[in-house]
Design a protein around this nucleic acid. Structure first.
Lengths: 246, 246
DNA sequence: GGAGGACATTGATTGAAATCAAGTGGGCGC
DNA sequence: GCGCCCACTTGATTTCAATCAATGTCCTCC
């Protein structure tokens, strides 16, 4: 758990200022946060917390990718969440980590000591409001993942994961979602397998199959290009229509 | 969606007063809620909301059981949540239902029109605080379910479901959790299958297998008794130790 | 009391993904 | 440049759960 103390960045210049738990804060509220925040960096592969560890801070991912995962006695593991920039880690009111948290890439986190943060939540409704909103979104995402884990085929799972990564990537780059796009996979085949409830061999086979059939193209192991995004969407098994109101 | 208007019960007499979204409210705050609340009853089997429906209320389950489920284009369905007494339904700030909500038994709900409720959340931090807490708990439950869906065997899934129902039942009855206990299954085999990401035949086979091996005993289709709860726990694949801090 | 239907069990067979087992290929250190 | 390691691919086989197909068992309603 050795890590590097970083120069603290001014909240006003923070790249995720408008999406993180502090999104709704006014300038004066930001100043309060600014006082209790500190940065930490974790290397790729490093464990940020183990299930059951005492965790004295909560944090926002500033950049990099981390995973949340759970493990059964005999070692079977399931990833239960992906922490991307602006995502929040830790639970106010809880002393211990509920999941294993691992840095997939190098990760920088904006940390707050838990006690002062809990106190701020009480006095600053904007923080609690935003956290509720983010938690509700995460719950929706977890439930969508339940549908994938419980009912989708291996091929649909892969297509769904690629879709999600492609969308997120496009939104970060502020590209409009064109029908063709490309991106890098931030996960190993094994991490993909842990996310999708598959084995790494099955992941590899399905990626190969999608490539063979021209749904995706590979450059190296990790760079994917999708010539026809609608075609990929068709492979996810999801409703194709957006589900807009009547 | 036809339903029966019930005589409104005084919040102070409400059986779930201390566990629901209103748990933290003071007497004066309860009075505000009291003004905007109304009861609705849904029959067993009735659909409370379809995904994408406009939903002008949020609600707390007072009694009965309802399910949240999602469906793929071709009809495969996955249950993503179980609403038990005191659980909250609907999302402040969202107009449409995100899931199909179905009454499994007869269900009574304590409803609040969405707009006034959202307004109350803004002015009454105790409600927002409690809702955040409940949402975080649901997120934990959803993630535990992801582990089950992604990595457990059919037998482990059944054992896990029985464990959860047994525990909840014991907590409702205020029994101390003895090593032997009994309860009724509130779900059909099909609903169990939808929850566990299995087919109803597999559910039936695994229940039969656990019975054959003496892990459980059946009286009728739905009444289960567990002679040795630890034995059942062993079948869930979960860590046996409670995961207490070091 | 019997017909009909919903819910459940059980059996036979198939099939998708896991498992077991070699390989391949690229990056890195020496 | 060589070898090694790691991430990944591919192949052969097994296995668990799905699927297809009968029954069985209540329960309700005439």
């Amino acid at each position: 758990m050795q890590d590097i103390e970083l120069t603290t960045v001014d909240c006003a210049d923070c790249p995720i200022r408008h999406r993180a738990v502090c999104a709704r804060c006014e300038t004066d509220e930001l100043e309060l946060l600014e006082e209790i925040k500190y940065y930490r960096t974790f290397e790729a592969g490093q464990t940020i917390a183990w299930t059951g560890d005492r965790l004295d801070f909560v944090a926002t991912v500033v950049n990099g990718i981390a995973t949340l995962s759970q493990t059964l006695e005999d070692g079977r593991t399931q990833m239960v969440g992906l922490l991307l920039p602006s995502d929040f880690m830790g639970r106010p009111g809880r002393e211990m980590a509920s999941y294993d948290v691992t840095a997939t890439t190098e990760v920088t986190m904006c940390c707050f000591r838990r006690r002062p943060f809990e106190e701020l939540m009480r006095t600053t409704p904007h923080i609690a409001q935003r956290l509720l909103e983010m938690t509700l979104d995460e719950l929706d995402a977890a439930r969508e993942w339940m549908l994938l884990l419980g009912r989708k085929t291996a091929r649909e799972k892969i297509a769904s994961l690629l879709t999600i990564i492609a969308r997120r990537d496009a939104s970060l780059k502020l590209d409009k979602v064109e029908n063709s796009l490309e991106f890098d996979l931030p996960l190993t085949r094994e991490a993909m397998a842990d996310y999708l409830g598959l084995t790494l061999e099955t992941v590899s086979r399905q990626v190969s199959a999608l490539k063979r059939e021209g749904v995706i193209e590979l450059a190296g192991k990790r760079h994917i290009s999708v010539p026809d995004f609608d075609r990929l969407l068709l492979e996810t098994g999801d409703d194709t229509d957006g589900g807009l109101p009547v």
